[in-house]
Every structure is written in C-alpha cells, then in structure tokens.
Write a protein that binds this DNA or RNA. Structure first.
Length: 260
DNA sequence: ATGCCCACGACACGTGGA
C-alpha cells in the first residue's frame, strides 16, 4: 500500500496537480494539509470520480486537513485530543480497511509557531505536547499506525539548506526539535530516514527568490511509523516533480510503501 | 542587509504561511 502526505496550499487551486499526481503515482492513501476551505466547497466529487473516498476536516481560509483513499475510510478523530477549545482544523485520524489489514492514519498540520517570542510559538509547543500524549496512547495499541503530515519541524541539521540561518526559527528551535524527538523516543520512526539515513532530502522550498531552482529547501513533511508499520516498510521517497510545475504548492509529496 | 511569492476573501497600508 502506497501512502503519501502533501501540504497542497489550497486544494481548490491545486486540484489539477493533485488529480494528475494521484493518476501517475499509484497512491492508495493521500493525506492532505492546508486545504484552505470549508467542507462544502471541498472538491470531493472530483476525487470520487477517480475512485477515491474522501474524509475532510475543513475551515474557512486557513488550515484544513483531509484523507483521500482507494479503500473505505472510518473516521476516528476530527481534532487532536487534549484541548476542546482548539478549533483549528489541523488533525484527522482515520482507519483504512484493506482486505484483512487495518491501518490507522493521521493527517497532521502542526502549527508553524513563528515568531518565537509570541503566543504562536506557545501554541505550537502545547500542540506538540498534545501530540506526544496522543502518540504515546497510540503506540500502546501495537497496531500499524502512520502519523504523517506537515510537522513544521526541521529535525536535524541535514534537513535544512542553512542550519545557522534557521537557528532562531520556530521550525528549528531547540524546544521544537526536542519535542519532535520525544515522539521518536516513543517508538515512531521517520520512513524516509529508515530508507535514506544520511541523504539531503527536502519536501519544501520557499516560493521566493528561486529557492527551488537553488535547492534551498527544508525537510518538514514527515511520515512517522509505529514499530508495527516499520516492520511492513518497503520503500520511502520524495517526489519533487509536482514542485516543478507551474502554480505549484511550496511543498511536494512524501510517500512510503508498506507490505500488505 | 532586505525582500522577493502565494492563497484567501472581499479590497487592505489585510492575514498567514515557513
């Protein structure tokens, strides 16, 4: 089963790119972030017409996550547990049933957190605390679990074109990196780092100043696998082709394939 | 050293992104 995550920066603007990528990539389950629209205006019928089921957590203008799947979707959570007052559309957890297999997947849009001297950074860190608590519960289930999305976290120096220049950024701040490691320490592994431990790989390039052409990128979109999912891992990679097209998202899909 | 670009929604000298 091929699973991918993609921050599309507006599902409506990016619709042709997403449909094209689904058709050429043989992707079974695509987790979307930054869909930037309410559920009523999500282009569900376009995806259903190419045989994908759709689950959505939308919001006006900002955020928004979704799951597109060739297999039936059961919705488990439409927000990250731990704060009932948090109304931002950043988390969707589903169960995908394919034959005898059951795979739990979360589409995650972790807060950016900049600038670091504001409540935006406080919100990011508390959101990460909630994710750690929830991930701890999930790992205890000993199931095939995939926590994937735009983490807005640069885990290591190799994951950024200019580590020094990003030291004071919320994506590379020591507190952010430390909380990300707490998730890994529960037993989750990054799919791409299991396959390519040392390679410089980016999933995001700024729109400005020809960042993509200069390969000044970041690796901030991650697929984290539970131990049971790791046992099924076949391959993982990043498909930069959608970033080369006209009117692209600033992110490109990160994927993994699991033995099923 | 700084800004560059993009999407949204309803024009804004706007916000948020990363």
């Amino acid at each position: 089963m091929k699973i991918a995550t993609w921050n599309v920066n507006s599902v409506r603007v990016r619709l042709p790119h997403i449909v094209d990528w689904l058709k050429t990539s043989d992707c079974d389950v695509l987790l979307l972030q930054e869909t930037k629209t309410i559920n009523e205006t999500f282009p569900s019928t376009d995806f259903k017409s190419i045989n994908y089921e759709v689950a959505i957590v939308g919001q006006k203008s900002y955020n928004g996550v979704a799951v597109l799947s060739k297999f039936p979707i059961e919705i488990l959570e439409t927000s990250l547990p731990g704060d009932k007052k948090d109304s931002q559309a950043r988390y969707l957890e589903v169960l995908i049933k394919q034959k005898q297999n059951k795979i739990r997947l979360s589409s995650i849009y972790l807060p950016n957190g900049n600038p670091i001297d504001t409540d935006k950074f406080t919100y990011k860190l508390s959101w990460m605390d909630r994710l750690i608590r929830h991930a701890k519960k999930l790992v205890g289930n000993e199931e095939i679990t995939v926590l994937a999305g735009d983490y807005n976290v640069i885990p290591e120096e190799i994951d950024v074109y200019d580590p020094t220049g990003w030291e004071k950024d919320a994506l590379f701040h020591p507190s952010t990196r430390s909380k990300y490691r707490e998730i890994l320490n529960l037993g989750f592994y990054s799919s791409i780092r299991l396959i390519q431990p040392q390679k410089k790989l980016f999933s995001y390039w700024d729109y400005m100043a020809g960042s993509f052409q200069k390969n000044k990128g970041l690796l901030i979109d991650h697929i984290l696998l539970s131990p049971q999912a790791c046992d099924k891992l076949i391959d993982s990679g990043i498909d930069a082709y959608p970033r080369e097209k006209s009117k692209p998202s600033d992110h490109t899909p990160v994927w993994c394939s699991l033995k099923t």
